[in-house]
C-alpha cells in the first residue's frame, strides 16, 4: 500500500525543529537537558502531523478508495493497514532518530532507553489518531489545516504520558505508571479508532 511520500520529510522536519530549539532558548546544557524530553516528544508529534493528510488523500483522488470500499475486506482493515503504513514511514524512523537528536539536546543518559521505548509505544497511537482525522477530512480540498486543528487536541493525552515517561526517566524516577498509561492509550486507539475512521470514510464516500 502506498503511504504517499513524506518519508524523509517528517524526519527532516524533526531534525530542524530540534536544531532550532537551542537557538531559541540558549545553549546552556542544564536548560536543554530539562526541556529535552518535551521538545523531542513535541517535535516527533509535529513531524507525524506533517504527513497525515497523505494517508488517504492520494487514494481518494484517483478513486482507489472507492475500489477499496467495494473490495471484500472491511474498511476497518484498510484503515489499520493505512495507519500501519504511516507508522512505518514516520513513527518508526522518528523513534530510531530520536536518540541521536537527544544527544544534540543534552538529554540525560538514563533517559535514552525510555525515550526510544516511549516513542515506540506512543507513535502508533499518533498514526491511528491521525488516520481518524484524515478520514474525517478526506473529502475536503484543503483539509490540511483543519486536520491539524482536529487532531492536535486528540494528541494531548498521548503527549502527556509520552513526555512524562521520558521526564521521569531523565530524573531517575519510576516510569511504570506513565508508560503503562501510554501503552493503554495505544491499545485503546488500536481497538476503537479504526471503527470511527472507517465510519467517517464511508460517510465521505457516500
Amino acid at each position: 500500500m502506498r503511504a504517499g511520500g513524506g518519508f524523509g520529510l517528517g524526519l527532516g522536519f524533526f531534525l530542524i525543529v530540534t536544531v532550532l530549539v537551542p537557538f531559541g532558548v540558549g545553549a546552556e546544557a542544564g536548560v536543554l537537558a530539562t526541556i529535552a524530553p518535551g521538545i523531542l516528544w513535541v517535535g516527533a508529534l509535529l513531524s507525524c502531523l506533517l504527513s497525515l493528510d497523505r494517508i488517504f488523500q492520494l487514494d481518494w483522488e484517483d478513486g482507489s478508495l472507492d475500489l477499496l470500499a467495494t473490495a471484500p475486506i472491511p474498511m476497518e482493515s484498510v484503515v489499520l493497514a493505512k495507519a500501519a503504513a504511516h507508522w512505518v514511514t514516520t513513527g518508526l524512523p522518528l523513534t530510531l532518530a530520536a536518540p541521536a537528536l537527544g544527544i544534540l539536546l543534552n538529554l540525560p543518559g538514563a533517559a535514552f532507553g525510555w525515550l526510544t521505548l516511549s516513542l515506540a509505544l506512543g507513535t502508533p497511537a499518533l498514526s491511528l489518531i491521525g488516520a481518524f482525522g484524515a478520514a474525517l477530512t478526506v473529502g475536503l480540498k484543503r483539509g490540511g489545516l483543519l486536520l491539524s486543528i482536529l487532531v492536535l487536541p486528540l494528541y494531548v493525552p498521548t503527549l502527556i504520558f509520552g513526555a512524562e515517561t521520558v521526564k521521569r526517566g531523565a530524573a531517575g524516577l519510576a516510569v511504570e505508571t506513565p508508560l503503562i498509561l501510554l501503552a493503554a492509550i495505544t491499545l485503546g486507539t488500536l481497538a476503537l479508532l479504526p471503527f470511527a475512521a472507517a465510519a467517517a470514510i464511508r460517510i465521505n464516500l457516500r
Partner: peptide, 27 residues
C-alpha cells in the same frame, strides 16, 4: 455529511476529552 462527520468527531472527542482531563491531572 457534515452532520454525520461532526457527530463521529463529537463522540470520539468526548472520549479524548475525558482522557485528557485525567492525563492533565496526572501531569
Amino acid at each position: 455529511t457534515a452532520a454525520d462527520l461532526t457527530s463521529v468527531l463529537c463522540i470520539v472527542g468526548s472520549v479524548f476529552a475525558v482522557l485528557s482531563r485525567y492525563a492533565v491531572n496526572f501531569w
